[in-house]
């Protein structure tokens, strides 16, 4: 495709470059090579959307934070490539200008990035998350701090998605509001499961069971049989906020 050459008409007033010259000038070859490499290493589920996002962020060169966000979201955080991507995002943010001569990642740009990543998370959760992993504006962010903050945010994103799905499954009437008793039951299960720690092997196994379909069904069934339903309802936001609280207690405070 790149070798295609078209003869130029002699009477063209502007000196026309050949296709090859054009492609070389705009470095389309490297551009395509880069994007192909990204696609193959990240294997996005919807490559077309991926390509669109990629070129969008490439076009917008000024906004470092949104570019870094795009790099981080290229692949799921469980994939090995994620680490490389975090490194890339960090290196990119190194270009951030702090003062006239000082460049680097400081607290401001780090907080902006975390905020951008958690854009779709309920506001209250976002604030609580930042309280835990926030750094002061003037601080220099080292790579390991950056890495753990970003990783926490990505896991939280997944967690929010899962708790939304959980809410939908207990929202029996599909009215956007679930019964409070059912919500409490599920949240209790979640809290007890998250309260377990590594050292106690038996509880780890138990909590895994309690959150499985069987365990949840058993708990919900017990709650239903007690029969004091219709004591109010919870919205999705309330539910996710409470579920995230359970998650955030597990996040170590930076300071």
């Amino acid at each position: 495709m790149a070798d295609k050459k078209k003869p130029n008409s002699a009477d063209d007033r502007i000196v026309q470059e050949t296709d090859r010259q054009f492609l070389e000038r705009t470095s389309t070859g490297t551009l395509i090579k880069d994007v192909l490499e990204k696609v193959i290493s990240n294997r996005p589920e919807d490559p077309i959307a991926f390509l669109a996002d990629y070129f969008d962020s490439l076009e917008d060169e000024t906004n470092l934070v949104s570019k870094a966000k795009q790099i981080l979201l290229m692949t799921h955080h469980s994939r090995p490539v994620f680490e490389t991507n975090v490194r890339m995002a960090y290196n990119l943010l190194q270009k951030h200008k702090v003062t006239k001569k000082v460049y680097g990642v400081n607290g401001t740009v780090y907080t902006d990035l975390i905020k951008a990543l958690c854009k779709d998370v309920p506001q209250t959760v976002q604030i609580k998350l930042l309280k835990r992993i926030e750094c002061a504006e003037h601080e220099c962010i080292k790579f390991d701090v950056f890495c753990s903050g970003v990783f926490t945010s990505c896991v939280l994103l997944d967690y929010v998605k899962l708790s939304e799905m959980l809410f939908k499954s207990i929202d029996l009437q599909k009215s956007g509001k679930a019964d409070k008793v059912l919500c409490e039951t599920v949240l209790d299960q979640l809290r007890t499961a998250l309260a377990s720690n590594k050292s106690d092997a038996r509880r780890v196994v138990e909590s895994g069971y309690n959150l499985g379909p069987d365990g949840l069904y058993y708990a919900l069934d017990k709650a239903m049989k007690r029969g004091n339903l219709n004591h109010g309802a919870q919205t999705l936001d309330q539910f996710t906020t409470e579920a995230c609280d359970a998650f955030l207690t597990k996040v170590k405070k930076l300071r």
Binding site: M1, A2, K4, K6, I14, Q16, D19, F22, L23, T26, S27, T28, L31, I32, I48, L51, A52, Y54, F55, D56, L58, E59
Partner: peptide, 25 residues
């Protein structure tokens, strides 16, 4: 890329990245 080259013939000042961005969107 083929479309980019075609597009270029009419608009010599094409921005390749912008074109790709529009194309994939």
């Amino acid at each position: 890329v083929a479309q980019l080259l075609e597009h270029r013939e009419e608009n010599p000042k094409t921005n390749a990245v912008k074109f790709f961005s529009e194309y994939f969107n």
